[in-house]
Amino acid sequence: MTRYRFYTATTLDGFLADEHDSLDWLLSQPTGDDSILPMERFMEDVGAIVAGRSTYDWVLEHDDSVEGAWVFTQPTFLFTHREVEAPRGDVRAVHGDPAQHRAALEEAAGGKDVWIVGGGDLAADFARAGMLDELFVSFAPVTLGAGKPLLGGRFALELLEHGTNGALLEARYRVLGPLE
């Protein structure tokens, strides 16, 4: 069965990126080899990816490993209302409610998980649609005071696991649903 998972990092005050979409605060954090869910192990279970436009643009602009190319090989569903100039790799521009795309996402995932890469508002849209099963978050010892929120909305979560990785606190939660 396909799981929908939001694997991300946040500041202690709950921001994924600053008000200029920068992740510099995260990239300077020391990490180790003790993650409760190492990225490599997580990626083994990922069959399809969901990204918002700001995340997609940031990755294209900042990933030096494959200049100008989309870094993931899995089919990617890019939720956007703007035109996408010549998407690189298997990137499908879509818009609307996540539930409209559920069948296509699960077919593309081929029985594996769907990773909601970002952002927080998009992950919240998936949660409201009943399509967010887990939140894995690394908390960095940084506060920004403003920026892009971790999860845009009010949701109940159940802690499943926690640990540390270098300077980061890690937690894995089951998403129970929206709070009334």
Rank of each mutant, 00 (worst) to 15 (best):
G32K: 01
L105S: 07
D97V: 11
G118H: 04
A93W: 04
L23E: 04
L78F: 07
V71K: 14
E61Y: 10
H95C: 14
P98K: 05
K112P: 01
H62A: 08
T31Y: 00
T76L: 11
R82A: 15
M131L: 15
A129K: 03
A48F: 06
E83H: 11
F126P: 00
E61R: 15
A108V: 09
A103M: 10
Y56I: 01
S22T: 04
R82I: 08
T31S: 11
T80R: 02
I116Q: 01
E67P: 10
D90K: 09
L135E: 07
G89K: 12
Q29Y: 09
P98I: 11
F136M: 05
F139S: 00
L105W: 07
W115S: 02
R88K: 11
G111T: 10
F42E: 01
S138A: 13
D33G: 15
W70P: 04
V50D: 01
A69N: 12
V94K: 04
W25G: 00
G52S: 07
E61V: 06
E134H: 15
D21P: 05
G111V: 10
D90P: 04
A103H: 13
G110N: 07
E107V: 13
E106I: 06
E61I: 06
V59M: 13
L27S: 09
H20C: 10
R102M: 06
A108G: 09
G32Q: 05
Q100A: 15
S35W: 05
A17E: 09
F139Q: 05
A140P: 00
W58A: 12
G110F: 02
G110Y: 00
D63S: 10
W70V: 07
D18V: 09
W115V: 08
V66C: 12
A93P: 15
V59K: 03
V46C: 04
A104Y: 02
D34P: 06
A109N: 07
E83V: 11
E19T: 13
V71P: 15
H20W: 10
E40D: 14
L78I: 06
A109T: 07
E44P: 02
F79S: 02
R41D: 14
D121N: 14
A103Y: 00
W58R: 12
I49D: 01
D24K: 04
M39G: 13
A129L: 10
L135Y: 04
D63F: 09
E83L: 10
